[in-house]
Each structure stands twice: as C-alpha cells, then as structure tokens.
Design a protein around this nucleic acid. Structure first.
Lengths: 244, 244
DNA sequence: TCGTCTCATTGATCCAGATCAATCGGCTCG
DNA sequence: CGAGCCGATTGATCTGGATCAATGAGACGA
C-alpha cells in the first residue's frame, strides 16, 4: 500500500512545488540531506509508474499533475483507492514493494527520494517520522470516509462527493463566490474511484448540470455556482473542519 | 479516525492478552512506564464506548470481545469502517477526538492507556512510534482492500470476503482440514460492514450454505469445509502473503 | 408454560444502476 | 479536408440488491 497525503517535506527553494513544512523545527542539515537523495522524474499521461507488487525503491511527492492508486481483480474489475494531487506524498517507508498500481492520469512530475537513505533519515530525525505518522493517519481518515461513500451513498451523492474533494484541493474562486476548477479525471477514472460505471457517471454529471448545481466548460472544466448546494447533493454532514 | 490494528505492546505478564512484541529490543523500563499508565475497562454488548467527535483521552488494545468503528449519516445510513478483534489497537495518538463511533458488539474488555503519557512515551522511545507507523500502514492497507470489496464486489463476494477475514483472525481447525469459527456479528452488523442490507446478507448466507461452501451451527458458528472454495467465492486474488 | 423480545429467514415486488448499443464531438494525422 | 480515434453522451433494456412484509426460532423473565 502507498501512503499518499499532504506534503511531507519542507519548502525547498529549488523545488518547483511548495512542500508544506514538516514542522517549525526543520533544520538546514536535514534539508541538505534531502537534497542529496532527491531527484525528479516525469511521466506522460496514461503511463504506469509502478505496478502492484513491483519492487519500489523510492518515495516521492507529486510536483505537478495527477496520479491514481488502483487495485485490479483478475477479471478486470478495478477500484481506485487513492488520488494523488500536487503536494501529495506516495510511498511506503519500511515496505519493499508497492501494493497498488500507480498510474499517471495527466502528465506528471514527481520529486523522488531514494528509499534507503530516506528511511535512514527518518530514524535520525524523529519528527519526520512523526510527521509521516500524521500523514498516514490523514490517509486512513480519507480512506475510511471513502468507505462510507462507496458503501452507502447513491450515484448522485458519490459524484457530488468527488467534485467536493477535487474542488477543495485546487480552489479557484471566480468573481461572484462561484468555484471553478479542473477535473483531472476521465469519466472512466471517476467511475473507478466511485465504484460506478462510466455511463452512470456521465448521466449523473448531466443531471447535476441540468439541475443547475454545476456547469461544464468542455469536459474537464467545472463551475460550481453554489458550493452549499453541491455539498447538500453529496449528503455531506462534514463541517469541513478537522479534529485535531 | 481511529487506528485499529495488530497489537502495539509487548507481552506483559499480568495482561490477559498476549500483546505481540513491539520489537525485540523492548526494555524493562518501557514496560514499567506502560504499567503505570495502564488500566482496564469492560463494556457490555451493544454499549457505545466512544461517540464520534467526542473527546477521547486514551488509546487502547482489545483484550477480549469485538468492537466496531462506524460512521453514520444524518439520515441514519451507517457504514462500518473497522472491526476490532482481540489484540487490535484503537486510538489516535496526536488527535484529540474520535472520528467514529466505537461500539462493543459483544461483551468487551479493553486495556487502556492514558493518552498524554502514552504520547510522551512515544516521543521518548522512537521504536514505539515506529511500530505505530507500521500498524497504521497495515490499517491503511486493510481500509483500501475494503474499498475494493465495497466498490466492486457482488453481495456473494462481499460475504465470502468477510468470512475469510474473520476466519483468518481466529483460526480453529477441526479434524479434517475444515475451518470452524465464531462469527461475532449480527446480520445487521455484517450488512453495515459490507454496504448491504441485512436481508441480502441473510439470503447470501443461506445461498452459501445451500451451495455447501459453509455450514452453520446456530447463527454464530460457521464451518468452512474447504477454504479454497470460500476464497474462490470471494473473488480473492490475494495469496495471503504480505509485502514487507 | 407462556408471552415477549430480539435476531434471522423467506417471499413478493420495485428500482437504481448495470449492461448493451448507437451516436456525437473534438482532435490528430494523412 | 476527410478518416479514424477516443472520450462522452444518450437511449433501451435488464437485473442484483433494496424495500416492504410476514413468519420462524431461540432466549429469557414472569
């Protein structure tokens, strides 16, 4: 399995992405260590980065683009179990292999760290390891919230829940309080995340559009005039706040 | 959210349960620390131990009995997101509140540790914190595996998957290679775990019985004459092995 | 011994979403 | 410009599981 969550690493000037800070105490020498073991990789849309059960000798942070974690049964049924957006972390410190397929759904740049030295650094600097626990707990929260979506929500609610999550991760507010964002997934990928068929996803998107809850510019750009209505459609009882 | 996974703590002689060892290096003084902050609590079947969003000032290990973690929507739809069997750990170090309802489904004894001192100990003894990360990663694996079950498996496969999991946790082999075990859940609780209704659970259990895949003694005792057939019914492609 | 309570089973019917199938629209490439 | 392709939409039909409803089977206390 792969941890994928809010950023792990400190801001580093030459890194094209703003890694959120590990914690206030981050020291220069830690960063220096990180610099030494760091490298970048880029992938094309559709490319599989790691196959399930393959050896995986790095951990990484998404710089730009979108990747997914998916599980596939022998008969081809697939379920997406994680969505990796910029600043998300991916990797299983302490594990040799990947538990899921990792696939780039758009062109993708990742900032990778060789696993062995990264693990060594974890041991040397406890608060990185502590931060990693925090992140993994967040991931577990997200996975369990998704279990409710998969197990108990209707198709309409599932779609709305997904739009909510994506919107919250890349908010671009248009003039009048509407929310505009990119939907970086095909209908099929959405279906795989939601445990639906792509036809049902398409129908429900159309239904939300006809109901005026969302409007679409092309297939990938979404405008939500009133977030509250979308969250209502999602059956969402979360206040958006976080228990800490 | 609550971490719930394979045991955290070392074997301690006066503890009725064999906590699996944190690691070989466990020291006497750590155990002494643990002893100081440890206490037991017992609950009756049906009792709610913690309500979602409540303050939760302890972490704990299940000694005997079964508890569940569940999420509930305003309209009453509920989804179980975790099943706590003996030796499982529950609690969110570093978080103030509980993210889910924790309910005892049988009479239950838990071995609790006050959270503040436990967290302090985590900081002082890095390998406990390390072990906790391991456990959380296991939980995340389990949650994601369950996402596949919820999103893509049929009712029949869901039932078989659940029986598989429960059977693996408390294996009692009867004379001829059959597996006999206790099913510590009502049909309703099974339904909540599987994203089904209790009627569907009951029908599928009957179907598996009529197909000879399982046999039932009373409502709670299950015999599986041939595990391979059950795993086939579960659509399970796992080899039972663990990537480490 | 008999109510009663809880949990489980079984039947009849319904419907949300799957499946099968046709069409559309934008894009790239010759 | 047209052919081919890929993803999205929309329609028609089917079906697995939900829903509504009745019955059964232990367990327990009066």
């Amino acid at each position: 399995m792969t941890v994928a969550t809010k950023s792990l690493l400190s801001n580093c000037a030459d890194c094209p992405i703003r890694h959120r800070a590990v914690c206030a105490r981050c020291e220069a020498d830690e960063l220096a260590q990180l610099e030494e073991i760091k490298y970048y990789r880029s992938f094309e849309a559709g490319q599989t980065i790691v196959w399930s059960n393959d050896r995986m000798d790095f951990v990484a942070s998404v710089v730009s683009g979108v990747a997914t974690l998916t599980q596939t049964m022998e008969d081809g049924r697939t379920q997406m179990v994680g969505l990796l957006l910029p600043s998300d972390f991916v990797g299983r410190p302490g594990r040799k292999g990947a538990a899921y397929d990792i696939v780039a759904t758009t062109d993708l740049i990742m900032c990778c760290f060789r696993k062995k030295p990264f693990e060594k650094m974890m041991i040397d600097t406890p608060h990185i390891s502590h931060r990693l626990l925090e992140m993994t707990l967040d991931e577990l929260d997200a996975a369990r919230e998704w279990m409710l979506v998969l197990g108990r929500k209707t198709a309409r609610e599932k779609i709305a829940s997904l739009l909510n999550i994506v919107a919250r991760r890349q908010p671009t507010f248009s003039p009048h309080g509407a929310v505009v964002f990119d939907l970086p997934l095909t209908r099929e990928a959405m279906a795989d995340y939601l445990g639906l068929t792509l036809e049902t996803v398409s129908r429900q998107m159309s239904a939300l559009r006809k109901a005026g809850v969302i409007s679409l510019q092309g297939n990938r750009h979404v405008t939500v005039p009133d977030m509250a209505r979308l969250m209502e459609a999602a059956g969402d009882d979360s206040d958006g706040g976080h228990l800490i």
